[in-house]
């Protein structure tokens, strides 16, 4: 649709602009302020220039959690996207069964994040949790509170459980939007199931998949509550992700300047990645 140039449309956007500016710009400015000062308490602050940035960039603890974060997000995407597509393909096309599936699959999304952590904290325990108990019964020594790898896998599994439904539902709605004629044409052209998926379903899922990847990447990048409840970041700092490092630094240790400098770097990373995604989406829209 051709859009009409009209600058008065700004009046319609103004409330959103003000609301979001209030919630986003003021805190952002504050963070920038913190990042160039050493703050001991109210009214006690010293200007330190770019010292914090220099320190943060050289801080190995932060670098580690950054790397950990990227690895984690990578795995999240690698597992959840194909799994989500697969589930979407299996879902019944319509009818009562369809909406029932939809509701059941959406359940994990509607659980508060700390409850998600709690559920898995219980579920994965070797003594009172079905999952942990089951694994131990199989003769595998599993203990997510003690073993680094176990903790990692548990967090990953929890995230897959929690968020694959989102990917699945996105893909499901994408699939539903494909006109029946395409399947009929493929049927008549004698396309194999794989060809149908490869040449009809996948290309038409592209725009939904970009959204799915975007949302999943961002949300896994700022994952905080769930692993915090589940493992507390441990054992050691093996499941301490970016957000948690940051929160501990700012609130736990009241190391405001360093936390602010780190936040800004974090923010810049997110900004760059989301810009890349956004550009990809708008270009995908344009091609249509």
């Amino acid at each position: 649709m051709e859009k009409i140039p009209n600058n008065r449309a700004w009046w319609l956007v103004l409330p959103v602009f003000l609301l979001v500016a209030f919630s986003a710009l003021i805190p952002l400015m504050t963070v920038v302020n913190y990042s160039v000062q050493d703050i001991f308490g109210p009214g006690q602050a010293y200007y330190v220039g770019t010292e914090w940035f220099k320190e943060v960039l050289a801080d190995e603890r932060l670098q580690d959690s950054l790397i950990r974060q990227f690895v984690f997000s990578g795995f999240v995407l690698l597992i959840q996207i194909p799994l989500g597509i697969g589930v979407a393909l299996m879902m019944p096309k319509s009818g009562v069964k369809g909406s029932l599936c939809l509701i059941l699959i959406a359940i994990p999304l509607l659980i508060p994040w700390n409850v998600v952590g709690t559920i898995w904290q219980i579920f994965a325990r070797g003594d009172i949790g079905l999952f942990g108990w089951g694994i131990n019964q199989l003769g595998i020594d599993y203990n997510y509170t003690g073993d680094t790898l176990d903790a990692w896998l548990t967090v990953l599994l929890m995230d897959v459980w929690h968020w694959t439904p989102l990917v699945a539902l996105l893909c499901y709605s994408g699939l539903r939007a494909i006109p029946e004629a395409f399947y009929q044409a493929a049927e008549i052209d004698r396309a194999s199931k794989w060809a149908v998926f490869r040449y009809i379903q996948l290309p038409r899922l592209k725009s939904v998949l970009i959204i799915a990847v975007l949302l999943r990447f961002m949300d896994s990048f700022m994952i905080y509550i769930e692993p915090f409840v589940l493992t507390g970041g441990g054992p050691g700092s093996s499941t301490t992700f970016l957000s948690q490092t940051l929160t501990t630094m700012a609130i736990g240790q009241f190391d405001l300047g360093r936390a602010a400098a780190f936040s800004l770097i974090y923010f810049l990373i997110v900004l760059l990645i989301s810009w890349l995604f956004f550009t990809a989406i708008t270009h995908a829209d344009k091609e249509k």
Binding site: M29, T30, V32, N33, Y34, V36, Q37, I39, P42, A45
Partner: peptide, 15 residues
């Protein structure tokens, strides 16, 4: 706005 801890550098930056 005292809690925002403004410093001249940042003011200049945002301006």
């Amino acid at each position: 706005i005292a809690w925002m801890n403004w410093t001249p550098t940042v003011v200049v930056f945002f301006v």
